[in-house]
Nucleic acid binder design. Structure first.
Lengths: 114, 114
DNA sequence: CTGGATCCTAGTTGATACTG
DNA sequence: CAGTATCAACTAGGATCCAG
């Protein structure tokens, strides 16, 4: 989804604001894994095999901008970069869990239909 | 956001599945209003002034396909079409409320930052 | 009134190659 | 390892016109 902050900020529906933040193609999953603990960039790549490196970088940068994720660069060789949730990011936990539960329901429904 | 059902169904993360369904640019808001009751097409248009007629139609069709929304056409002149949530659609209520609450928090945060 | 069909553009994404 | 740069391709979305 495109980020259209102007539109989002103009709207009076907070649901839209939330989806603007976590609605990106891969953000939900990234947040979901980070909820389980700190991850290095390469670890996240393994978690999201269908997400290109470029996209993962972009999505992480946006999450960082929104204050949900903290990025820590270690001055080592080879380089190491770790991502973790901020306190604000962790405040999304109940929402993400709700999404996950409903997603399970949805998937079960799809199976019955098939 | 683009709909990539194949990817979504392949993933084992249910969060992604949920966002695939409600993550569309306008779906969250549409669902939010339908939660408050049945709406005619024109009423929804007024609720979403920034959403073009075409987009609203497309998003409603997808929600209908996903079994969240029921579309009722009345054989009248002028035509009348009403949209309402299905039982399955209403099962999203707690999730949407969670999104709304978090969105409020996020917006307050933005204000403090500014 | 509620859309469907078509055309068109801007923005998004993937593939690939390169770098500190 | 963890990115950035660049280019090509795709697609979402707007505008407009038509129809039951």
């Amino acid at each position: 989804m495109a980020r259209k902050r102007d539109d989002d900020s103009k709207t009076n529906c907070a649901v839209e604001a939330s989806l603007g933040v976590i609605g990106g193609r891969w953000k939900g999953v990234v947040l979901y894994w980070l909820l389980k603990g700190t991850h290095r960039f390469g670890e996240l790549r393994k978690r999201l095999p269908n997400c290109s490196q470029r996209m993962l970088t972009l999505q992480l940068r946006e999450l960082e901008e929104d204050g949900l994720v903290k990025r820590t660069v270690y001055a080592e060789v080879p380089p190491r970069v770790e991502y973790e949730l901020t306190a604000f990011g962790r405040s999304l936990e109940p929402v993400l869990m709700g999404l996950r539960e409903w997603g399970e329901k949805y998937k079960r429904r799809l199976q019955r239909a098939a």
